[in-house]
Design a protein around this nucleic acid. Structure first.
Lengths: 242, 242
DNA sequence: CGCACGGTTGACCTGTATCAAGCCGGGTGG
DNA sequence: CCACCCGGCTTGATACAGGTCAACCGTGCG
């Protein structure tokens, strides 16, 4: 059987990321069936889109490797990074409501995703309750995550935003087996700024400030968190104490 | 059969809001079954919560009448309005992921909601494909809505935010049969400010500016949009020209 | 080698926050 | 019925965080 060089057949049942993107409480038979969810895998080269605003929606994507950003744009050319996604996370949920995507998903490094046709997900989740519930949880989690971003954008100062951003990233990386205090940023200062509602200069200055205060060490994209408690304190103690 | 004074039995099948909160393409039999989704109705007095952060999640709520705000808070007392909801809209989606709510939903005026136990929704949506798909769309719609808010909070200036806010409100009200240019705000300037990431004074000043420019008429909470095109122009034409 | 892109830093500007005073309208109690 | 109060709103003066513009630097790639 000929295969597209960009795709290959795979199974969830023996995937090491399964506990991150699939429900955990499955019996053997259900586990088997879950493999039907993933159609193929697809490789995405750094800097290229997984999908773009306006494209028809067909599938959700589970990230196997690599790092993505999603962003929305207005007609007048403004755009906003709405999230950064890493291995085990699901992208494409925005497309369900109108059958086409309403944001861009760009790979920030070479990546590989599992393509999960949404009609197949719906079909299977009618049969496997655990999967149904899992899909609901994933969507709800995204809603809650966005609440957090709204809180950040609506009420935090630059330092608080950056501190929250770093803590969130390192926490997610740690859940994937990486260091709990060291990370390599896959995005530019400008992309961080877009996500945090700041200009790239402000991001840069805030990094410098943290370095001066001995809270972090920054070497290009390599960041080491020296004082995680200090970062936490920055996040939840608003300055305004008039 | 004795009834709780705050609740009463009801049916979706003959509800005039059905097309707003339920799927449209149902056959007669499915329509019948849909009535099973709503357990009871519940009345909420102005200023009181429908649910609070931390409370166990059991149900989604379809608003029948009235107006709500939802808000999230941090430990340090900061809080952020994440949305305003009106008749036909669904609240409570935040609770699915962790089986308890992560935000507060407060009635801004006396309200009535349809209580839809989530396990019943899940059960029924395993049988009725249209309902399943509808639930997915509602959640996806919320995600997309929040993308829009992130764009607003992350990249718009005060005037743009307020203009976008007014246009959004009036558009939703119009879809419910109200005027396309006149509206009564159910929330305070402070609540608007929280939602838009602005202080109440800035909201007030921006209203005044719009009034000066003849774009809107403001009388307390009563607002008339005199020049909708001007508002649209304000929203999508960022000032930063180069 | 040199160019280009990402990042840093400085000087200055501006939009929004902050603080403060006062207004308006509706509800309450004398 | 009026006086008062209180919460919500407006407006002004001032402060400051972050934006803007510009110069420069470092690194990696062609």
């Amino acid at each position: 059987m000929p295969m597209n060089p960009l795709t290959m057949k795979v199974a969830c049942s023996n995937c090491n990321l399964r506990e991150l993107c699939m429900p955990v409480d499955l019996n053997a038979q259900e586990l088997q069936r879950i493999d039907e969810v993933v159609a193929v895998r697809r490789k995405i080269r750094r800097g290229t889109p997984l999908f773009r605003n306006g494209e028809p929606f067909t599938s959700l994507y589970a990230i196997r490797t690599g790092f993505f950003k999603t962003c929305v744009a207005t007609e007048d050319g403004r755009d906003q990074v709405t999230g950064f996604q890493m291995a085990g996370e699901i992208i494409g949920l925005d497309g369900i409501v109108n059958d086409h995507h309403t944001c861009d998903a760009l790979a920030l490094e070479d990546a590989e995703v599992c393509v999960m046709p949404f009609d197949r997900i719906e079909e299977l989740s009618r049969e496997i309750t655990a999967l149904q519930h899992h899909v609901h949880k994933i969507m709800s989690r995204e809603i809650v995550r966005e609440h957090g971003v709204m809180l950040l954008l609506g009420s935090m100062r630059a330092e608080e935003r950056l501190a929250a951003f770093l803590l969130n990233l390192v926490q997610r990386l740690h859940a994937r087996g990486f260091s709990r205090s060291e990370l390599v940023l896959r995005m530019t200062r400008e992309e961080i700024g877009s996500y945090l509602g700041l200009k790239l200069e402000t991001v840069s200055r805030t990094f410098s400030k943290f370095v001066e205060e001995g809270i972090v060490e920054v070497n290009q994209r390599h960041v080491r968190l020296l004082d995680i408690d200090a970062l936490k304190r920055i996040v939840n103690s608003q300055q305004t104490c008039h």
